[in-house]
Computed example of a mutant assay.
Amino acid sequence: MAGSLRDVLLSDENRDAFVADARRVLDEEVRAKRGPTGIMLKGAYKTVNAVHATFVNSVLRVLLPDFLEQLQPHWDAFTSAGKRDFGTFLAGRGDQAADGLLAIVDRRAEASAYRSVAKLYGQLRSQAHKHVVQALPRVGTLIQRGMAAAD
C-alpha cells in the first residue's frame, strides 16, 4: 500500500467513494449514540442536515485532507508493526488520535462563516473527545478498507 493516506484516499479516482464511505461512518456513529448526550447529538446532526443539506458532505471534503494527514503517523506505525486491524490499533492510541483530530475541528469551527453551526459545535465540544475516541475503530476500519481497495 504505497502512498500517503491523503494521496491515495483523496486521489481523483478514490475521493468520491471515500467521502461517501466517511459519511456513512459518521451517520452510523451518530445513529449509535444513546442516552441524553445521544439525543443532543442526534438533534444537532438532524438540525445541521435540515438547515444546510449539503453541509456535512462539504465539511467532510474540507476536513478529510487534514484528518488523513493527522492520522498518517498512526498509519505508518500500524503498517510498520505489521498489525492486521487499523481500527483496533487506532483505538489503542485513542487520546492522542482524538486530540489531533479535534484540534483540526476546533480551528475550523473558530474560523467558520457558519456561526450557528460553530455555536452548536461549541455547545457539544465538551463531550467531543469521548465520542471521537469511540468512533476510532470505525474510522480505522474505513481507512484500512479504503487503502486496501486502492491497492
Score class of each variant (00 low, 15 high):
residue 1 M to K: 07
residue 1 M to D: 12
residue 1 M to S: 13
residue 3 G to C: 05
residue 4 S to F: 01
residue 5 L to E: 08
residue 6 R to Q: 15
residue 6 R to P: 01
residue 6 R to L: 04
residue 10 L to K: 00
residue 12 D to L: 06
residue 13 E to A: 12
residue 13 E to N: 06
residue 13 E to V: 11
residue 15 R to V: 01
residue 15 R to E: 14
residue 15 R to Q: 12
residue 15 R to N: 12
residue 17 A to T: 07
residue 18 F to W: 05
residue 19 V to M: 08
residue 26 L to M: 09
residue 27 D to F: 00
residue 30 V to Q: 11
residue 30 V to E: 07
residue 32 A to N: 09
residue 32 A to Q: 13
residue 33 K to Y: 14
residue 33 K to I: 01
residue 35 G to L: 03
residue 36 P to L: 15
residue 37 T to A: 15
residue 37 T to K: 13
residue 37 T to N: 08
residue 38 G to D: 09
residue 38 G to Y: 09
residue 40 M to H: 03
residue 41 L to A: 14
residue 42 K to F: 01
residue 44 A to W: 02
residue 46 K to M: 12
residue 46 K to S: 15
residue 48 V to K: 02
residue 48 V to Q: 01
residue 49 N to R: 15
residue 49 N to I: 03
residue 50 A to M: 08
residue 50 A to Q: 11
residue 50 A to H: 12
residue 51 V to M: 05
residue 52 H to Q: 11
residue 52 H to N: 12
residue 54 T to A: 15
residue 55 F to N: 09
residue 58 S to F: 01
residue 58 S to G: 15
residue 59 V to I: 05
residue 63 L to T: 12
residue 66 D to H: 09
residue 66 D to L: 11
residue 69 E to N: 10
residue 69 E to M: 05
residue 69 E to S: 13
residue 69 E to D: 15
residue 70 Q to W: 01
residue 70 Q to G: 01
residue 71 L to A: 01
residue 71 L to M: 08
residue 71 L to V: 04
residue 71 L to D: 10
residue 72 Q to A: 10
residue 72 Q to R: 04
residue 74 H to A: 13
residue 74 H to L: 06
residue 75 W to F: 03
residue 75 W to N: 13
residue 75 W to L: 11
residue 76 D to M: 00
residue 77 A to H: 10
residue 77 A to W: 02
residue 78 F to V: 01
residue 81 A to Y: 03
residue 82 G to P: 08
residue 83 K to V: 08
residue 83 K to W: 06
residue 88 T to P: 03
residue 88 T to G: 09
residue 89 F to E: 06
residue 89 F to A: 12
residue 90 L to T: 03
residue 90 L to R: 13
residue 90 L to I: 02
residue 91 A to M: 07
residue 93 R to N: 15
residue 93 R to K: 15
residue 94 G to N: 10
residue 95 D to Y: 03
residue 97 A to S: 14
residue 98 A to N: 02
residue 100 G to A: 09
residue 103 A to F: 00
residue 104 I to D: 09
residue 104 I to N: 00
residue 107 R to G: 04
residue 108 R to V: 14
residue 108 R to G: 07
residue 109 A to Q: 14
residue 109 A to C: 11
residue 110 E to L: 08
residue 111 A to D: 13
residue 112 S to Y: 05
residue 114 Y to G: 00
residue 116 S to W: 14
residue 116 S to D: 12
residue 117 V to R: 07
residue 117 V to W: 10
residue 118 A to M: 05
residue 121 Y to S: 04
residue 121 Y to C: 02
residue 121 Y to L: 06
residue 121 Y to K: 02
residue 124 L to S: 07
residue 124 L to D: 10
residue 125 R to W: 06
residue 125 R to E: 06
residue 126 S to F: 15
residue 126 S to P: 06
residue 126 S to D: 10
residue 126 S to C: 07
residue 129 H to D: 08
residue 129 H to P: 05
residue 131 H to W: 08
residue 134 Q to F: 04
residue 134 Q to T: 12
residue 135 A to P: 04
residue 135 A to F: 00
residue 137 P to D: 05
residue 137 P to G: 06
residue 138 R to C: 03
residue 141 T to Q: 13
residue 141 T to D: 14
residue 141 T to W: 01
residue 142 L to A: 05
residue 142 L to T: 08
residue 144 Q to A: 15
residue 144 Q to K: 10
residue 144 Q to S: 12
residue 145 R to I: 03
residue 146 G to V: 13
residue 146 G to F: 00
residue 146 G to H: 04
residue 147 M to R: 06
residue 148 A to G: 03
residue 149 A to T: 11
residue 149 A to V: 05
residue 149 A to H: 03
residue 150 A to Q: 08
residue 150 A to P: 12
